[in-house]
């Protein structure tokens, strides 16, 4: 059995799910989140220079929202800020921060909430796709990957969850990955971090459901961004603007878990159901 066979089987399955999903998405559109009022929404975007986040932010900008961006690179963060301002954002501010330094998170969130005058939506989008081989060679890099992709997210979500729980409304969206659905030899360090994020969000959603806060787990498949620049692009790759549209819609309609594009839901259902005795022999 090879990779192609899997992908084709999964695509067939996905087509079936797609029809069901179309019906569901129509229903979702009916139940808009209650926090949507007429004024600008207060949106915090962490990891704002990532291609997916920057594209998602454009939807909020076009809707005339207030945006607070967090990035690491000064030129890039400023460039994204200017872009969103021209595209129609009501107000945009940014702050430079290396998110691996979790000690700064409390300050960061306080500054964002103060500038925005509250918080309606947060999108956590930062992450790195480290080299798996290099991670295998030593724990140092593995630890760094886990910190960036998992622990720093937990560090941000812990105070954020309390804030949202208290205000009883809003949406927390976090970019996880299909890589977290099943560990594979080609990227299990990244996958483990994303699996941690997905499980954390699952629990958080369970906790915040009664407070009316939406917790949205976003699981993109292959996206053509600088993060995947070194990977050869097959036909399953999509541009970041495609995923961004899905994220924006998921936030607007308060989804729980979204695979983007939708067919990855089918692909991952198949992949998750392969018996481990077979799966361990595959070169995935």
């Amino acid at each position: 059995m090879n990779r192609k066979f899997f992908i084709n089987t999964a695509l067939g399955f996905a087509a079936g799910l797609g029809a069901a999903r179309l019906v569901k998405s129509r229903q979702d559109r009916q139940r808009r989140l209650s926090f949507r009022n007429t004024g600008p929404r207060k949106v915090l975007i962490i990891g704002a220079t990532s291609a997916i986040a920057a594209e998602t932010a454009r939807f909020f900008a076009a809707a005339g929202d207030d945006l607070f961006l967090v990035g690491r690179n000064p030129q890039k963060t400023a460039a994204v800020t200017n872009d969103l301002q021209v595209r129609g954002a009501n107000r945009v501010e940014y702050r430079l921060q290396d998110l691996a330094d979790t000690a700064q998170h409390a300050n960061l969130l306080a500054a964002a909430i103060e500038w925005l005058g509250g918080l309606d939506i947060v999108l956590i989008a930062h992450g790195t796709l480290g080299n798996q081989k290099a991670c295998q060679a030593g724990y140092d890099l593995t630890e760094k990957e886990l910190t960036t992709n998992f622990l720093s997210v937990v560090s941000l979500l812990t105070p954020l969850a309390n804030h949202f729980e208290q205000q009883q409304r809003g949406a927390i969206a976090v970019i996880s990955s299909v890589a977290g659905d099943r560990g594979r030899q080609s990227n299990y360090v990244y996958g483990a971090a994303k699996a941690g994020v997905s499980a954390f969000l699952q629990g958080l959603r369970n906790r915040l459901a009664k407070s009316g806060v939406a917790v949205i787990t976003i699981k993109p498949g292959f996206v053509d961004t600088p993060m995947t620049a070194g990977i050869e692009k097959g036909r399953l790759f999509v541009g970041p603007e495609v995923v961004a549209k899905g994220i924006y819609q998921a936030i607007e309609t308060g989804q729980d878990v979204v695979y983007l594009p939708w067919f990855w839901g089918g692909i991952m259902t198949v992949i998750k159901h392969i018996p481990e005795s077979i799966f361990k022999r595959l070169s995935l």
């Binding site: 291609a51 920057a54 460039a79 994204v80 200017n82 872009d83 021209v86 595209r87």
Partner: peptide
């Protein structure tokens, strides 16, 4: 095409930088 950010839009003078 991914290098597609606006930089400044002077709405009074009609100057657009991107």
């Amino acid at each position: 095409t991914p290098m597609n950010r606006f930089m400044a839009f002077n709405r009074k003078k009609g100057l657009l930088r991107c």
